[in-house]
Write a protein that binds this DNA or RNA. Structure first.
Length: 131
DNA sequence: CGTATGACCATGC
DNA sequence: GGCATGGCCATAC
């Protein structure tokens, strides 16, 4: 799919953030969107994930806010198998505990080097956001 | 233009 | 806790 330049420009940032999610942990579309900031919401992150080319981008570690895989069919099976091989557990309803496996943003060092900064927030004091 | 559809989410009941 | 609604951004007809 084609996108306007403003949105396409943010895709690399989305990929850079997703690359920071370590094995055995997961994040959500909405969290990635908030970290990247700018003209980026959860749907755009989903769009970016659908077009990943770089094999170093761990797209399988991005799930929805309910802790569930948003894909269907064979792709969903692939995503779940990859996560389980990293130690991520699913309950009987196919749900991951974000409490246990959730990733809460890049470390401060990486953030500083890539032009992000800490932004105090009532909900999550450690939430990062773009300048 | 309005409408439908997405690897989405917060809110309210 | 499930379900509906509206909002979000973008695309296709």
């Amino acid at each position: 799919m084609e996108h306007n330049p403003e949105v396409r420009a943010v895709f690399p940032r989305i990929y850079e953030v997703v690359k920071q999610v370590p094995p055995g942990q997961v994040t959500t579309y909405g969290d990635v969107a908030r970290i990247v900031g700018g003209c980026c919401d959860a749907r755009v992150v989903g769009e970016a994930m659908a077009e990943v080319q770089d094999p170093e981008v761990p797209w399988h570690r991005v799930i929805n806010a309910k802790g569930m895989i948003s894909l269907r069919g064979a792709n969903a099976v692939t995503q779940r198998r990859r996560l389980e091989s990293e130690g991520v557990a699913f309950n009987e309803r196919g749900q991951v505990s974000l409490k246990r496996f959730g990733w809460h943003g890049p470390d401060a060092e990486w953030a500083q080097q890539h032009g992000y900064h800490m932004l105090a927030s009532a909900d999550d004091p450690n939430q990062m956001r773009l300048f």
